[in-house]
Design a binder for these strands. Sequence first.
RNA 1: CGGGGUGUGGCGCAGUUGGCUAGCGCGCCUGGUUUGGGACCAGGAGGUCGAAGGUUCGAGUCCUUUCACCCCGACCA
Length: 417
Amino acid sequence: MKVSQLFTKTSKTAPADEVSKNAQLLIRAGYIHKEMAGVYAYLPLGKRVLDNIANIVREEMNAVGGQEVQMTVLQPKDIWEKTDRWDDAKVDNWFKTKLANGTELGVGLTHEEPVVDALKDFIGSYKDYPVLVYQIQNKFRNELRAKSGLLRGREFVMKDMYSFARSQQEHDELYEKIAAAYVRVYERLGLGDITYRTAADGGIFTEKFSDEFQTLSPIGEDTIYVDEAKRLAVNKEVYTDENLAKLGLKKEDLQEKRGVEVGNIFPLESKYTDALDVHYTDENGEAQSIIMGCYGIGISRLVGLLAEHFADDKGIVWPDNVAPFRVYLAQLGTEAEVAEAAGNLYKLLTDRGVAVLYDDRDVRAGEKFADADLLGIPYRVVISKKTLAANQCEIKKRTEEAAHMVSMDEATKILAA
RNA sequence: CGGGGUGUGGCGCAGUUGGCUAGCGCGCCUGGUUUGGGACCAGGAGGUCGAAGGUUCGAGUCCUUUCACCCCGACCA
């Protein structure tokens, strides 16, 4: 991609109506556009980051046997009435709408009911189990107050997975397998060290805990108590002596921290499947309850968290595997030889599958460097008269101060690695 | 939903106790000089002041209503 063709531009100033650092950085750099409170559009660069994160999640969900589907945003009222979740008194952040004939519809905020409805024809036999399906889709929640940029929106991108098991034991095994996949996701995103599996309220439908994945951050909305040695934490909402005993945690080992909920997994038991009257038939021909679990990861929330967490005074510092481009190739000067050398390296790297953002604009060096920094591209490569005099180019990592002069071959080797 | 705050060209802001054709910086367009950390000079386009109503000879400035946005809190399957 050439910068001259990228329709977004960077800005020196952040809009006054955004206070949160993640939104300020992402808007200044042209990754996102705020449409209204809690609702953001993803522009080309932002879309690439969103997709990169989604793909990491997708790979890990596939690796544990998840099958990707795409369910509907529009929801019929009746299935939600069966589980007693249609009533605004029960779930108050529904967006609802109507068909022309007056029929009420819900706008998807989660998909337990629809996924059971969609799968019920296929999971009637014990031979069909276990089943793991997931989707990556926009969710809509009528939050009373959207805030913190991408961290709490009314429309957001979420990966939600649902598991179906024949027994509690089968469910528990799946649940732990998926929890391990979550750990891998956060490790791959560079958040492994500061993300803790956290016991939290299981919801009104179960005695059990749910497990949140909380990333330590001063911008976190949740208060959690962390046992660093065990790499476990407990959410303040369930922080009682009785619960600590259940969890095998000791008060003196816990430290109070702020966390951003980057994932949440719930044991649902047979609450939804029973309510929707969906069962499986066992070896003896008898109907049995289906044990369900659900597993969420806020993809767009991660975009915001990563942008805010990996940043310095110059801008964003994306981890390599989520950055929209791997290389920011800055051509300094418009001389034919410089343009040709830069163009050649751009083509060479692009042909090798390296994502390069080629700054071919006729603007000053400082502006290109500032943009490279603000955008947070992992590698910056400079080609100018100066570097060409030595038949070289300059390469610098976003995370480092110093640049190095290397041959074109050497640069290609590093960047295509 | 309770409390607090803010709406003036694309963005950031200034507009005295109401008073002349509503300013400044950035960005944008044209020309020129520049060219390794967001250059400089000259010229130019662009706003009816969130919206509606009212008071007044006169409203960006005052009043009423309303919408939107931000922050704190509550809420968050």
